[in-house]
Design a protein around this nucleic acid. Sequence first.
DNA 1: TGAGTATTTGAACGCATACTCATATATTAT
DNA 2: ATAATATATGAGTATGCGTTCAAATACTCA
Lengths: 104, 104
Amino acid sequence: MSMRSNTQLLKQELQNNKALELCARQCGVIGDATKLKICYLLRYHSELSVTNIAELVGTTVSNASHSLNKLRAVNMVTSRKDAQTVYYSLANNAFDNIISLIGN
Amino acid sequence: MSMRSNTQLLKQELQNNKALELCARQCGVIGDATKLKICYLLRYHSELSVTNIAELVGTTVSNASHSLNKLRAVNMVTSRKDAQTVYYSLANNAFDNIISLIGN
DNA sequence: TGAGTATTTGAACGCATACTCATATATTAT
DNA sequence: ATAATATATGAGTATGCGTTCAAATACTCA
C-alpha cells in the first residue's frame, strides 16, 4: 500500500517482485488447456482420482499424473492417498496469487 | 448458470469450451515474467511507449515489441500511434476472461 | 534529401514444455 | 505368490517459446 507515482520505484519493484514471479509461474502452468481443465474440474468435484481426472479431461492417466505434478509444484492442487487411489483437490488458495495481481 | 451434477455433461463441456481455451491462451502469454510485468506496468500508467516499457521492465525494445505483439494477439493490450511513437494500454477487459474462469 | 528517432519484423538459437510409451512402485484381492 | 488395479516416473521426441541480432519501415526535423 505504498505511493506509486515515482516510476523509478516502480521499475525497482518490478525487478525483485516475488509475487509476480510466482504468478507468472502459476499462469504458465495453467496456460495449458489440459491443466486448466483439471483446475476447472476440481472446482466442481471437491476431490477426484487420477483415473477420473484423466477420463474427464480426455487424456491418458500418465499425462494427467504429470500435469497434476506440475500443478502441485506451484501449490495449486493437493493430494491425499486412500489405499490404491490418490485423490486430488484444488488447493485452498489456488488462485489467490493470480487474483491479487490481476484482479481488481 | 446451468445445473452441474452430471459428470457426463461436465466432460462434454470441457471438450469444446471456447472461453476455457481463450483463458488458457491468455494465461500462457502472461505466464512469462516479461509480459506479466508489462501488464502490471500498464495498470499504473494508462499508456506507455515501447521504449518506456522496455526501459521499465528491463529488456530490449525489440523484445518489448515482440511481447506487446503477443499480448495484443490475445486482446490484452491496445495501441495508438502518435507520430513516431506507439502508445500501448491495457485493454478494457484484459483480465475479464481469466477472472470469470478462475475468480470466485 | 539525409540524419535521427521509434518501432516492427524475421531469422536464428537455445531452452522449456506437452505428450507418449515403457516401466516401476504400491496396494488389494484371490 | 500371482494377478489386477492405481499411480508415478523417466526417457524420448516434437513442438513452441523467449530472447537476441540485424535489418526494414515509419516518421520528424534540419
